[in-house]
Amino acid sequence: MIQCKGVHKWFKDLHVLNDINLQVTKGEVLVVCGPSGSGKSTLIRTINKLEPINEGTIIVDGMDLADRKTDINKLRAEVGFVFQQFNLYPHLSVMNNITLAPRKIRKTPRREAEEQAMQLLARVGLAEKHAAYPSQLSGGQQQRVAIARALAMNPRIMLFDEPTSALDPEMIGEVLSVMQDLARSGMTMMVVTHEMGFAREVANRVIFMDAGTILEEAPPAQFFRTPQHDRARQFLNQLLTPMHGASTTAAA
């Protein structure tokens, strides 16, 4: 479904993506992790061309992103994207946030679009919030609406860019469980996240990135038990036992 070959990207002098090769097959859940600044967010944003690349090829659902004949808007409609900051439209109700794209792009009649939206809202556990405005929702609820909005175009692939990083701890669970259900339903997913519990339980494969390169690629069991690189071991140590990292700093 997703194929990256020799992808390079520079921001001025900074080499943010350095020879990225990866593949996501249908129904697979790929988790991308790594320290901040490792290029993981940039990578996921290149998959629907929110970020252009300088070199290499990306093929999504059989369409080459670099090909001039590819209708990029059509491709984006097939690929759902969930942002760290939710990015709901504040001037529209939850219902209209979800139905905007289907109605304007697919020309779905309003009633049909709203029926589908109600089903999606039920699926993310927010059916009673259809008339609310984003500002009236908690962060976790906003993110679940954002997932419903991305699903409204019936995408074949879902991309998540740190979907729980902006959330209070007690709201992370509700978003992760929606994502877990989605994975179980057979959705092809690529998820940038620090939630290692999610990676362990849901992912088919984990990719570890640092400084723009993929250092490690393994099934979660193997990745967590026997990470190959020092950098990955360090990262996991700090993430899984945060107190450990804190005490060493204090000792130093």
Partner: peptide, 21 residues
């Protein structure tokens, strides 16, 4: 920017993002 990106990522054309969002 996130507002534009959200609209763009759902497949709306640039003028639609401008007009509706």
């Amino acid at each position: 920017r996130g507002q534009l990106e959200a609209g763009t990522s759902t497949g709306l054309k640039h003028w639609q993002v401008m007009l509706y969002i």
